[in-house]
Design a protein around this nucleic acid. Structure first.
Lengths: 244, 244
DNA sequence: ATGCTAGACTGATCTAAAGCAGTCTTGGCT
DNA sequence: AGCCAAGACTGCTTTAGATCAGTCTAGCAT
């Protein structure tokens, strides 16, 4: 059996709200249309409108914008438990594209169902808003990362953040995690060239800070890494559920 | 007399919703506590909690994050009509600081009053959400700016965006606008050194694209500037109010 | 078994932007 | 009138990271 309270989405919301039985069943109700998408085939194209939203239940996705000159900037990665296109459903045509990095499994959510769930369970609505606000805080942190950190620190900070996010939904451990990203993904997210990403990873590895090899990220010296990158998880952490 | 419908805030919301008389008076009701802040004295410090939110009615503000090494990254500028700290009021302790760039005039909004207004006028709530989502789209665009554009294009793009934003609240014109930012502000926002900002501005000026001098930004050749920077206002524009 | 491809990896060269160490200009202060 | 401080501006040197032009390796498809 596949209990809803073990889903990454419920796990994530539990960081903000202690979910009651009826809230869990409201969540269950949203999980009607399971869908599968293949790695590399974009879910949503930049500029498209009338989108559905998705809750990612398995696999990794990235959201990105392409420029006219062909370069792309990855804005964020989505991991299990994350919403895809929440804003574009509620408010406006999507202004970026989503690419599944692995094959993924996602639940399609109709705007109407979502609004109904929110109306019946304001606590759930609050929790989702909280999660959305955390995502926004993350984008801001990426901005700082791009604007004010050199390549090594940028990479270190990014990999630490990813670890912290995965931990929130119960994936990975203190010592590391599995990570399907290629060096090209890292380059597009961190504003570097793929070549330089490779060199940066080597340096971090040689300095005994962190190892990223064949799909596994290992923190070789977590404390020194945190210190080095100036990683402050304050913007991610919730000391515990705020709504009991 | 000082009609509420001429306030930058109302003007901005009008881009999303045609405001009825009762909505205007609801807005009027929010404008109880006018406050003044002096340039350079931070409104809200990073990490502080229990904040009020403000609607900026006059002057410019920037929101920024400081890192442990002292460098700062300006995340966004707020101009008249913008909300300050909406998220921090609704959801969490503020994760960045606000610095008035000029002396400013702002209206303090209590969380309770805001929620009440939203409850009584869902269309206003929608309009505010829309505005918030536009702000988020802007942060994303800044991310692309930092990650994937060189200094010249970055500057050009930024100054064009600012012009478009000011136009939305009825400040400035097609040919340019008044701008109180120093080259240090530009540097902190664009992830450059102040020295380099100076050189970039000179180049843009010498190439006949844009002139920023003694507090005035002038588009010398707007078309070429748009072309050069790859500025696509799609993420800012609303073709007209969506809710009639 | 032999290509073919995606991704990891490397050394050499080039360039955008930083950093340093100033000067020049303007406006406010006493 | 003279001083001071902010901010604008400049030339010179250094450096982080891009770009070019590859090689190497581990799957896969035929």
């Amino acid at each position: 059996m596949n209990l809803i309270e073990n889903s990454p989405f419920a796990r994530k919301l539990s960081n903000f709200v202690v979910l009651t039985a009826s809230e869990l069943s409201a969540l269950q109700n949203l999980h009607k249309r399971r869908r599968i998408f293949l790695a590399g085939r974009d879910l949503v194209q930049q500029g498209q409108s009338d989108q559905a939203a998705y809750i990612l239940s398995e696999g990794w996705v990235c959201s990105y914008k392409v420029q006219s000159d062909g370069t792309r900037q990855i804005v964020d990665f989505q991991i299990p438990g994350d919403f895809l296109g929440l804003r574009s459903v509620l408010l406006r045509a999507s202004d970026h594209s989503f690419e599944p990095i692995t094959d993924i499994q996602a639940v399609e959510v109709q705007t109407g169902d979502l609004l109904e769930t929110f109306a019946n369970s304001p606590r759930l609505a609050t929790a989702v808003l909280w999660a959305a606000s955390r995502d926004e805080a993350m984008v801001v942190e990426h901005l700082v990362n791009l604007g004010r950190r050199d390549a090594d620190r940028r990479m270190a900070h990014f990999l630490l953040e990813l670890g912290a996010r995965l931990a929130l939904v119960g994936i990975g451990s203190q010592t590391g995690y599995d990570c399907p990203l290629t060096q090209y993904h890292l380059a597009d997210a961190l504003g570097l060239s793929a070549v330089h990403v490779n060199r940066v990873l080597r340096q971090l590895r040689e300095n005994g800070l962190i190892t990223f090899r064949s799909g596994k990220v290992t923190f070789d010296d977590r404390n020194r890494l945190v210190e080095f990158s100036g990683f402050d998880p304050e913007y991610l952490d919730q000391a515990g559920p705020l709504l009991k």
